[in-house]
């Protein structure tokens, strides 16, 4: 049996997108330090149900840091205090007995609250839909080894592709910008030989869609700090470069000027 903590939680409760929200305070005694943050919320919910109170809705699924479902603001920090860690992999041993913890949903105009700690992140899918793919219909592919890709290129693409789409970058950004999310996908695809034909239209379309929902990037760098996969802010520079080039070289636009 592990050591236990006695905690006080201020949890954001909100019945729906249009309802008013409020913090409610719950005592959470006897929380094992080996529990994950989400298992701590499970224990709080079990207690609420036992008392006949409606449990707290919070986003979660795989609980191993890869699906990107989970994510709450913990004491004002997206995914909490541990670097490179999604909420589900944050364990209570990182907290101390007697702590008070504020738990809030992601805060961004593009992510309206659905209920309690759950928000709607569908604008991220809209960005992918705008160009976050390589057009390679099933059946058209050549042998995979026909296109050698230098290991450094593949590794760098993978560093960007590791994004789990949790939205912490947006939640951490003072402008609620989604540059890091967008840049990660753009760089993953634009750095690879397969991604070259659609390179500039991809950058342009994804940025334009992004700007329909999200704020502007002013290089605070909070996004990379909050990212559970520690995706580098450098990718935003690559995104800006490709987006700028797209503006200059977009052949479709050239004929319309």
């Amino acid at each position: 049996m592990s050591n236990t903590l006695n905690l006080t939680l201020n949890i954001w409760r909100q019945d729906g997108p249009n309802g008013p929200g409020r913090f409610e305070t719950y005592k959470a005694p006897g929380i094992p330090e080996d529990a994950s943050f989400l298992e701590m919320l499970d224990l709080v919910n079990e207690e609420l149900i036992a008392q006949g109170k409606v449990p707290v809705e919070f986003p979660h699924d795989c609980r191993e840091g890869i699906c990107g479902s989970c994510g709450v603001m913990i004491n004002g920090q997206a995914h909490g205090p541990e670097r490179g860690t999604a909420t589900c992999q944050l364990h209570m041993r990182k907290f101390s007995d007697g702590d008070t913890i504020d738990v809030e949903p992601w805060r961004a105009a593009a992510f309206p609250v659905i209920r309690d700690l759950v928000v709607d992140r569908s604008p991220l899918d809209a960005i992918i839909e705008a160009g976050g793919y390589i057009s390679a219909p099933t059946g058209t592919a050549q042998d995979a080894n026909e296109t050698p890709i230098p290991k450094e290129v593949a590794d760098s693409a993978m560093d960007a592709a590791a994004c789990i789409g949790c939205g912490a970058c947006v939640a951490a950004c003072p402008n609620s910008a989604a540059q890091l999310f967008t840049a990660a996908k753009v760089w993953h695809l634009n750095s690879l030989p397969q991604g070259q034909p659609e390179r500039y239209r991809r950058a342009q379309n994804m940025v334009e869609t992004m700007e329909l929902f999200f704020g502007s990037c002013t290089n605070h760098g909070e996004c990379s700090e909050a990212c559970p996969k520690e995706i580098s802010q450098d990718f935003i520079a690559y995104l800006n470069r490709d987006h700028m080039k797209a503006k200059f070289f977009n052949r479709k636009l050239a004929s319309q000027r």
């Binding site: 099933t138 042998d143 995979a144 050698p148 593949a154 693409a157 592709a161 993953h188 397969q194």
Partner: peptide
């Protein structure tokens, strides 16, 4: 494997660029 490589899945590679 061919299909996924064509879509840009960043499979692990050798220094020679092959899978």
């Amino acid at each position: 494997i061919d299909q996924m490589a064509a879509q840009g899945v960043p499979f692990a590679r050798e220094y020679g660029g092959l899978l």
